[in-house]
Nucleic acid binder design. Structure first.
Lengths: 223, 223
DNA sequence: GGAGTTCGATACAGCGCTGTATCCGATACA
DNA sequence: TGTATCGGATACAGCGCTGTATCGAACTCC
């Protein structure tokens, strides 16, 4: 009786296509990301994830070993998406190089390039969970540091290319400059979320903060 | 039977003096700070805190309403200590103004001034828990933002005083400069902990990072 | 269209944690 | 020295969560 109960409404739309294992996994991962972001890793129960995804715990344990294993996978997926998103946007910005106007504007453009499409707040919260875990668990730390290093490289490259294109000089080695930018980028977001700013204001606050850093980092050769 | 079981060994030393309620509260708070730092807020059970403190849950519920309430109190205590520590050290640095040598060295000195005595790792982990909660809970956010603002003011003041004493100029408004410094300061620590660096290396990595920022922020008027 | 396989639902046993209610010993005060 | 109070220990009831074991239904492939 009650077959189909537990299937969420939006499932109806998805059903025609292959209701594959991968689909289920993806939905569980998405749901987990949301719940983690809302209440934090430790406070999240497997049950809450399943409920959100429209499954029961049977589906969960059929797809994942444990909450921890799911989190690791989720973090990996998030990281690679993040890096990929930045990579694409960096490539796009460099492509459109001739259009870059001034140093400050370029840097604000960089900020926008860093923002992966989707819910920023969710991304920041998830990132903060990953960092928290990375500080306590060596396995997670390894993954986090690898992703961090990749991000740094991408941003560093962008900075170098922009500087070169505009005939400007970086006041720091590119990697150090990138680290400073990324740290400020994340820090600003955390403050904005704690302050309860809505999505749009968050982006503006972040852009402003990173714009400041940009001014410091890029030197005019004329000076 | 078994009177005294549950009393930790170090208690023996404390016992002669007034075994006051405050003492118990303080010990529970200390224990909570350690456990929170080790496993995270959500993963911490009241039982674990009590065990660490050498009490049973009876003592806990006799002194605190809940884990949440204890955490709020702990965060407040931590914040005020942090602010107080910085304030004192800032005052000390300003006092010894004539001895300041060069801009970079002054800034590295500033970093050291920021480090509150005690376990840095514990402080960073605790701070990160507070931030995580602040992003989800308005009450905690309020406290966090207040403390953050105070810290910013202290550091901003220090920057201004140093600049003035040395005849240098800040490239940014003092508050913005302070925010940049503090953000980098925290970010560097998180990376260092994730990388598994020991206490000493952590401090060095942090000093190096903040030193870089210092160079960017302080302008030589001669230029 | 029948057999095998797979995915997810359901049922269940067990545990750890919470919070309260009760008890005991120690200090404070008369 | 007897009584009141208070802080902390002990005992207990209940719950939510975990993980496993079982079951049923839908695809797959012949």
């Amino acid at each position: 009786m009650n077959r189909g109960i537990g299937m969420s409404e939006q499932d109806a739309a998805l059903r025609p296509q292959t209701r594959s294992r991968e689909n289920t996994r993806a939905r569980l991962l998405d749901a987990a990301a949301q719940v983690f972001a809302e209440v934090g890793l430790g406070e999240t129960s497997v049950e809450a994830i399943c409920e959100r995804a429209g499954f029961t715990r049977g589906a969960f344990y059929s797809n994942f070993e444990s909450k921890d294993q799911l989190f690791v996978e989720l973090a990996a997926r998030f990281a690679s998406r993040q890096v990929e998103g930045v990579r694409e946007r960096v490539a796009a910005m460099i492509e459109s190089g001739p259009d870059l106007r001034g140093d400050r504007d370029d840097m604000v453009g960089l900020v926008e390039a860093l923002d992966v499409p989707g819910d920023v707040r969710l991304g920041v919260l998830l990132m903060s969970e990953i960092k928290g875990r990375a500080m306590r668990d060596a396995k997670t730390a390894e993954a986090y540091l690898a992703q961090d290093a990749q991000m740094l490289r991408e941003v560093a490259q962008l900075l170098e290319e922009i500087a070169q294109a505009k005939g400007l000089r970086l006041a720091l080695p590119a990697e150090d400059a990138a680290r400073t930018v990324l740290t400020a980028w994340e820090g600003a977001a955390v403050r904005a979320i704690a302050a309860g700013l809505p999505e749009q204001a968050l982006l503006e606050a972040r852009a402003k903060e990173v714009g400041r850093i940009a001014h410091l980092i890029i030197e005019h050769p004329s000076l």
